[in-house]
Design a protein around this nucleic acid. Structure first.
Lengths: 103, 103
DNA sequence: AGTCATGTTCGACGAGCATCGTACTACAAA
DNA sequence: TTTGTAGTACGATGCTCGTCGAACATGACT
């Protein structure tokens, strides 16, 4: 059958808060997760991005990134397809993402 | 006589850490301080920028901004002349400051 | 000298956060 | 059905951070 996809709650583009975004990106672990995610060119299960922390901590970080509007997640089966909200971030904070990815 | 100026320790341009800068800017109070500072076109005593916190808290925030490399401070008399490190920030993280000041 | 202004430092307090392990949910595959 | 896989939720722990007041330092001005 067609894959059942459930969308999680995400902040709208207009609701993105600079403080929240900066705070989310100021954590080294989350920063590396964002950079790793940028290397994928398609939405990928967040489990495929490995970071040296426990499963629950990783889940926590993805939540922070999602709630600040940096990533978008869609549930498919047991997996949670994750991608950067490039266009939204560029629209709201032009240049920020590029800057962060360059390091 | 010539005004006695003492320079405080500042991180070098090459030492600026993205995480530290983002963390410093992710606090609403510090963000407003940076924006207020940007409105001055000359180095001004940090006391002239008023924020709704106590004197010691304000001092703490200036220290965080200085140690992350966002501002430069020079002592002159009892005052501490403060300015944004625009050129340094632009060199290291192009576009970031402009983006932050725009909101 | 004495006083005022500018700003730091210190200790304390409360809130938030990064981290973990365990328990739990839900889909998939055998 | 049973087992495995992907991920969340919860409670606990320890650290960091924003905040304050009080004390201190230092230069300027009378």
């Amino acid at each position: 059958m067609a894959s059942a996809e459930a969308v999680l709650p995400h902040p709208d583009v207009a609701e993105l808060q600079l403080e929240s975004v900066l705070h989310a990106l100021s954590d080294p672990m989350r920063l590396s997760m964002v950079r790793a995610l940028a290397a994928c060119d398609e939405p990928c299960p967040c489990g495929t991005i490995d970071v040296p922390v426990s499963k629950s901590t990783r889940s926590h970080h993805w939540r922070v990134l999602r709630e600040s509007g940096i990533i978008r997640q869609v549930e498919r089966g047991t997996a949670r397809l994750t991608e950067l909200r490039r266009a939204d971030l560029d629209a709201r904070f032009p240049g920020l993402l590029e800057l962060v990815l360059r390091g």
